[in-house]
C-alpha cells in the first residue's frame, strides 16, 4: 500500500509541474508539438529514474557535505548518455529538442527528487518515486504539447491537418504561457469550487 502511494504520488497529488511549480523551462520550450513533448518527457524520465537509483545505491558512501556536487555528476553522466543516444538513434528529435537535452542537468525536478527522496530511501522506493515523478512530468508536458499542436497547427502527433485555420500563436512562444496559465487557472477554479462545496456542506450540518 505504502509502495503504491510512493508510485502514484508524482502523478497528481505532488505533481512536480502543476503543484510544485518546478521544471518549467523544458515544459514550455519544447511543448510546441506532441512528439517533441513526448521525447522530452521520456528523456527526463530516463534520467530521473537512473539518477534516483544510483543516488540511493551510493547514499551510504557519499559524505554529507559534498552530496550536491556528487548528485550533479551522477545526473550529468546520465544526461550525457541520453544526449549521445538521441544524437545517434533519433537525430531529427535531437535536433528539434536542441539545447534542452543538455539542460536536463539543471532541471530542478531531478536534483530535487535526488535530494528530497532518493538520498533518504531504499533503492526500490527510489525507483518507484522516479517512475511516478517522471510519468507525472511526461503526462503534463504531453498534454500541453497536444493542446498546443491541435490548436496551433491543427494536427496531432504529426497527423494530417484536421483544423483548417488553426491559431498559429499557440505554437509560438506566447502560446506556451497562455496554455499553462489557462491550465493552472482551471485547476484553481475546480479547487475553489470543491472547497466552497465543502464549506456549504459543513454549514448545512451545523
Amino acid at each position: 500500500m505504502n509502495r503504491l502511494k510512493t508510485l502514484t504520488n508524482g502523478l497528481i497529488r505532488e505533481n512536480p509541474v502543476l503543484v510544485l511549480m518546478i521544471g518549467l523551462c523544458p515544459l514550455l520550450a519544447v511543448s510546441n508539438n506532441a512528439i517533441n513533448a513526448l521525447g522530452m518527457g521520456i528523456a527526463a524520465t530516463f534520467v530521473l529514474i537512473c539518477s534516483n537509483v544510483v543516488i540511493s545505491l551510493i547514499r551510504g558512501v557519499i559524505p554529507d557535505q559534498i552530496r550536491i556536487p556528487v548528485f550533479i555528476v551522477v545526473i550529468s553522466t546520465f544526461v550525457t548518455i541520453i544526449d549521445l543516444m538521441m544524437a545517434s538513434y533519433l537525430p531529427p528529435l535531437h535536433k528539434s529538442l536542441g539545447i534542452f537535452v543538455p539542460l536536463i542537468v539543471v532541471n530542478c525536478i531531478i536534483l530535487g527528487r535526488g535530494e528530497a527522496f532518493a538520498y533518504r530511501n531504499r533503492v526500490f522506493d527510489a525507483l518507484l518515486d522516479g517512475i511516478g515523478m517522471g510519468v507525472g512530468f511526461t503526462l503534463v508536458i504531453v498534454l500541453i504539447g497536444i493542446i498546443r499542436e491541435v490548436s496551433g497547427n491543427g494536427t496531432i502527433f504529426g497527423s494530417a491537418r484536421f483544423i483548417a485555420h488553426p491559431a498559429m500563436i499557440m505554437i509560438l512562444p506566447p502560446g506556451a504561457f497562455i496554455t499553462i496559465g489557462s491550465l493552472m487557472g482551471i485547476l484553481n477554479w475546480t479547487r475553489n469550487r470543491q472547497s466552497e462545496k465543502d464549506m456549504i456542506k459543513k454549514e448545512e450540518k451545523e
Partner: peptide, 22 residues
C-alpha cells in the same frame, strides 16, 4: 478573478510580453 490570482495571471502577462518581443 479569484481562480487566476497569483501564478496564472503572471503567465498571461508573460504571454503578452512574449508577443511583444516576437
Amino acid at each position: 478573478p479569484k481562480a487566476l490570482a497569483g501564478y496564472p495571471i503572471a503567465f498571461f502577462t508573460a504571454a503578452l510580453m512574449s508577443l511583444a518581443f516576437l
